[in-house]
Design a protein around this nucleic acid. Sequence first.
RNA 1: GGGGCGGUAGUUCAAUUGGUUAGAGCACUGGCCUGUCACGCCAGAAGUUGCGGGUUCGAUUCCCGUCCGUCCCGCCA
Length: 603
Amino acid sequence: MTNEGTALDGMGSERRSHTCGSIDRSMVDQEVVVAGWVHRRRDHGGVIFVDLRDRSGVVQVVFRPETSTRAHERAGGLRSEWVIMARGVVEARSSDTVNSRMKTGEIEINVHEIRILNSATPPPFAIEEDAGADEAVRLRHRIHDLRRPPLQRSLTIRHELSRAMRAVLIDQGFIEIETPMLARATPEGARDFLVPSRLQAGSFYALPQSPQIMKQLLMVAGFERYFQIARCFRDEDQRADRQLEFTQVDLEMSFVGVEDVLEVLEIIMVESAREAVGVELQRPFPQMSYADAMARYGCDRPDTRILLELVDMTEIFAGSEFKSFRGVVDNGGIVKCLPVHNAEEISRSEIDRLEKFVRKELGAKGLGWVRVDAEGEWRSPIAKFLSDEERAAITERSGAGPGSLLFFQADEFERANAILSRLRIDLGEKLGRTDGREWDALFVVDFPLFEKDEKGQLGYVHQPFVAPLEEDIPLLETEPEKVRGTHYDVIMNGVELGSGSLRNHRVDIQRRILGLMGYTSEEAEKSFGFMLEALEVGAPPHGGFAFGFDRMVMVLAKADSLRDVVAFPKTQRGQDLLMEAPSPVDSEQLEELSIRVRVPKPE
RNA sequence: GGGGCGGUAGUUCAAUUGGUUAGAGCACUGGCCUGUCACGCCAGAAGUUGCGGGUUCGAUUCCCGUCCGUCCCGCCA
């Protein structure tokens, strides 16, 4: 019992007349009824102040014995987070007691009558802007965390964004159609969450990874413009920007080209950002090819506000005496450089820390570096391996001069780029090498349709239904690895928000692509039979995209993690620390589902 | 599956080279206080040092294992 000794009141016929944050000077002398949580209490013995909080804000209510002995007496027992309703008169504060840091700081409410609606256990951490508590504590006590302003703000932004997107899409002629959460398992893509069927013992539904296939079927069915704000599920390991379940703004349109889809995407983002947070994004969004993004930023989702750029040096080392770089190039790898000019402030020990970091965390073989000192001399562990011609070529390509610091990676294409891309972001932010823009939205386009795996087998880069560019269709027969896809990504502030493409609407091309990816026609039939069938009943040209709704909220709310824009998120190990999910279930439940659980016994 | 960082009171942190009674702020409990707004003052209570094992006369400290949180790689689009 948390309310021992304190009698609780009902609301009776009393109702709130105003929200806390809405009360201002204009209401002085008016009688109001406010309700909310005891944010803070300051008991001066004679007079008691309570900061009363509701969703709209905080207002100071005052209990004086001369106003109401009874209310004052009862207010003495109030504690943090108790729930009260108070009737009183709005009074202007004297000039020396105005609190300019509070929105309602010019007034206070002189309470005549209090109703104590509920008591509360003490909160595990302070309900304020910065919780200052460990994330595990915050997640275990999510209700208290949700009372804090940052989460109240981000969930409100989330709501506004959702509302705005829905409005724009409806305005653009899209209709909202729900698709099943109990769907069919697919061997492709991410690991499925499975749901056992009771009626079909031994069979399973899968929660949808996305409504991809279903929305294509809706296009074939003739809905022309579909959208859905859809929950999606992927049983893969988590990241700051990846939750097991997440929300996509999913849409698909018929009889369109890539530019039509991108235009809709732009309109949605611009309008909804304006509605949700008052941000004005510039249209049109710049477009960058995948090849360019990788070349300049080492990353297919560049934050172009960071001014540092990578330079390719592979050619220079193709015939080099410097064996470790040369060897990488001979094996098909690349040599890439991140030049940082005027880098005097990066100390030698900082370089050592960076090297340790890229080795330990990113799997780098090392971190080559060259520092050009004030006299133009090279201070570098690798300079002695380089010929004069190589040094000249490096200087020319990197634009190095006194004060420059060059970081090198010689490795496979993916890894060399990934490592330098990470350094680019870390150093760019640390050194403040940014262009000062707050928002950076762009499209990355011209992705290849296929990529080769270790065995040389072609596989899809995004998903198997992406259509090739029309002019590249002949290449499917001759040089399939050169076929460009119609895929595009939309990036904001270095976060991949969403992606889409045109889809294969011709069954012959879809079959050809599946064939190139190594599917026999039997396998193709088994995995995608109903899709292929759908393409044979009059499938219109169509395309669309899926947009990471949570991620956009995260970017707009300037949060670092999806957990800060989701009401009840899961930990990296997939647990809900509040509800304690997942959990074992009763054997009767399993029995009904014809399921027997086998968990490896601990040693 | 792998790597980095972290886990001590409700909470945030401290604790010398391994040393005897594990401290502090906030929160909490009690008391005082009629203008505070992170109120103030006085007093008090509060610990399985994540868990298990090992080394040692002695472990919060060193070692091994394990669990949890987080960031990253793999995975995922």
